[in-house]
Each structure stands twice: as structure tokens, then as C-alpha cells.
């Protein structure tokens, strides 16, 4: 343990980054705990850890190139690797407390009673310069593209990084595509005007007029999960015909939903079609 008054925080930050890297993170960064003004009251770092000074973010564990190539969309639902970053966040929190004697809490994955994340890890990743929010929603790293993130809130006053400038989205390819065709890969794949989740424009190299239907996205991302379970259960309970009710209970939809909930310890992302076509990090998703 290092005495608090002997800590060089810039050196400590480098040490934390090195440990995160050795433990599987591709990126790490720090956001100031005071920079979360945009987060709703009750969902800021100090709401989880009083006197929080910094939020350390780690990112990595993307699906492999082969995962993206699979023709079976259900494949990635059960091979999600997001829990690796959550595990790393827990490890980093413990390291901060043991090595530097500051409080540290890994932001829990999952949601609270209001179905909201305890703190937005994507906002933390954006503020820490580990990536930037995309038109489609997920935070993209400019080199690696889509990845998973974990966040650690600490009372340790680490030097803060800044959001990326320019942001990773829109990629130059998307700007060119938008200029030529009036759309981008993600908008083209999941257009709100045709029953999808996304809409938006690109102006002066930045996306604007963005629309995102989070409730429709939930029907896709949480297709065979808690929302799907609630919908099917509701329909099944209302079915007066016992034979039909049996068909619904034993249906592939309901059974698959139950299996998915069994597989999952925290959450599952069951739709990644907007990310599958994203050019950011494309080279890492392409092999022979």
C-alpha cells in the first residue's frame, strides 16, 4: 500500500493503464467525476460513491472477427464478452483500494428498479476519451470500433482525459456514403422510416438530427430476454384455450427466451446489426 501523500497521480494512472492492458483491456482512460453534469441526478459517480473524484474506464473484449461472420445471428447472443470488462473493472477497483488506499467501486452492470443503468458507462467512456458515441448509439473507439467497457468510480484524484476530437463517428467512409446516397451503413440497416430504430443526418462532418427509438431497439436487443419474456407470458396468460396455451408456452420463442435468460448472468445484447456494418474498426473484424 502506498501512503496517499506520496502518490504521484500521473504515475499511478500509468500504472493502472499498464495493469488494465496486461489484463486484457485495449484502452483505458479517466473522466473527472465532476464531468457528469449531463447525467440525471441520482445517476452520477458521487451517487454511487460519495466524494468520488475520478472514473477509470477500461475497454476491450470485442466479439472476434469470426463472430461477426457467422450467418447465425443467435450466435453472438450467447458469446457476448462484455462480462470480461466487468470482471476487469472489479479487479481494478480492488487494486486501487489495496495499492493506493482510496475507495473504488466497479459500476455494476445491469439496471436499477427504474430500468436505468446505475451510471452511464458509455458516458464515462466518452468523457474519458476511450471512444465516442456513435449515430447508432454504442461508443466506438476510432481504431478498434465497437467494444465493451467497464468503469470504476474512485475517490482517487487521477488526472482526467478529454473526449476524443474528432470523434470516431461518423467515419470518413460514412461521410462519403452519406454525401453520395443520403444514408450511412447503420441508418441503411436499421432505418426508423422502415420499422427500424435510427434516423439522422450528417452535416459538416458531424451527425445531427439523430433519432433513436430505444423502445424499438429493446425489441431487437432484448428480443429473447426479459422484455420478450414479459410479452409472451402476458399473451400466454390471456389465452383461454388450454391447447393453444400449451403451444405458446412450449413455443420456440418462449423456450429460447428462457434459455437466453439462463445463459445470462447480467445482460445480453441480442442485436448488433448496426455495428456489424460499421466501418470503424472494420479491419479488426476482417480475416481470411
Amino acid at each position: 500500500m502506498t501512503a496517499q501523500n506520496k502518490i504521484d497521480f500521473a504515475t499511478a494512472k500509468s500504472e493502472l493503464a499498464a495493469i488494465a492492458g496486461k489484463s486484457g483491456a485495449l484502452v483505458s482512460g479517466v473522466a473527472s467525476a465532476g464531468a457528469f453534469d449531463d447525467a440525471p441526478e441520482g445517476y452520477r459517480p458521487a451517487d454511487i460513491l460519495p466524494h468520488a473524484k475520478s472514473v477509470l474506464v477500461v475497454g476491450g473484449a470485442q466479439p472476434r472477427a469470426g463472430d461477426w461472420q457467422s450467418p447465425n445471428y443467435q450466435h453472438m447472443e450467447v458469446t457476448t464478452t462484455s462480462d470480461r470488462m466487468q470482471t476487469l473493472a472489479l479487479k481494478m477497483a480492488r487494486f486501487i483500494e489495496d495499492r493506493f488506499s482510496y475507495y473504488a467501486v466497479a459500476v455494476p452492470a445491469g439496471v436499477d428498479r427504474g430500468q436505468q443503468p446505475f451510471m452511464s458507462i458509455s458516458m464515462a467512456a466518452d468523457l474519458a476519451g476511450c471512444g465516442s458515441k456513435s449515430l447508432a448509439g454504442p461508443v466506438l473507439h476510432p481504431e478498434f470500433g465497437f467494444m465493451y467497457y467497464g468503469a470504476i468510480i474512485t475517490t482517487m484524484p487521477l488526472p482526467a482525459d478529454k473526449p476524443l476530437d474528432p470523434p470516431a463517428c461518423p467515419a470518413p467512409e460514412c461521410v462519403r456514403m452519406y454525401e453520395a446516397e443520403g444514408t450511412t451503413p447503420c441508418l441503411n440497416t436499421c432505418p426508423a422510416k422502415a420499422g427500424g430504430c435510427l434516423d439522422g443526418r450528417i452535416e459538416d462532418g458531424r451527425f445531427t438530427e439523430r433519432q433513436y427509438d430505444a423502445t424499438r431497439c429493446a425489441t431487437r436487443v432484448q428480443n429473447y430476454w426479459v422484455p420478450g419474456f414479459q410479452k409472451v407470458l402476458g399473451a400466454t396468460l390471456q389465452e383461454p384455450d388450454a391447447e393453444k396455451q400449451k403451444m405458446m408456452l412450449f413455443s420456440s420463442m418462449f423456450s429460447r427466451t428462457l434459455w437466453s435468460m439462463t445463459y445470462s448472468n447480467v445482460a445480453q445484447g441480442q442485436c448488433a446489426e448496426c455495428m456489424r456494418v460499421c466501418p470503424v474498426g472494420y479491419e479488426y473484424r476482417t480475416k481470411n
Binding site: 461477426w68 461472420q69 457467422s70 450467418p71 447465425n72 445471428y73 467512409e173 460514412c174 456514403m177 451503413p185 441503411n188 440497416t189 436499421c190 420499422g195 427500424g196 424499438r216 425489441t219 431487437r220 428480443n223 422484455p227 420478450g228 410479452k231 409472451v232 402476458g234 399473451a235 420463442m253 441480442q270 442485436c271 446489426e273 456489424r276 456494418v277 466501418p279 472494420y282 476482417t286
Partner: peptide
């Protein structure tokens, strides 16, 4: 609930298109 069934169709098609055409499917 129909929307959840539609989500399955959407993902099957988008995923299969990509596996066959790769990025050429869009860009």
C-alpha cells in the same frame, strides 16, 4: 409482441446478408 417476432426476421436477414456479401452489402 409482433414486433419481437419481426425482430427475429430482421436479424436473420441482416446477419445472413452480411455473411454472404460482407461490407459490400452496404458500403
Amino acid at each position: 409482441l409482433d414486433e419481437f417476432e419481426e425482430a427475429i426476421r430482421f436479424k436473420e436477414k441482416a446477419c445472413l446478408d452480411y455473411s454472404v456479401k460482407g461490407m459490400s452489402a452496404v458500403m
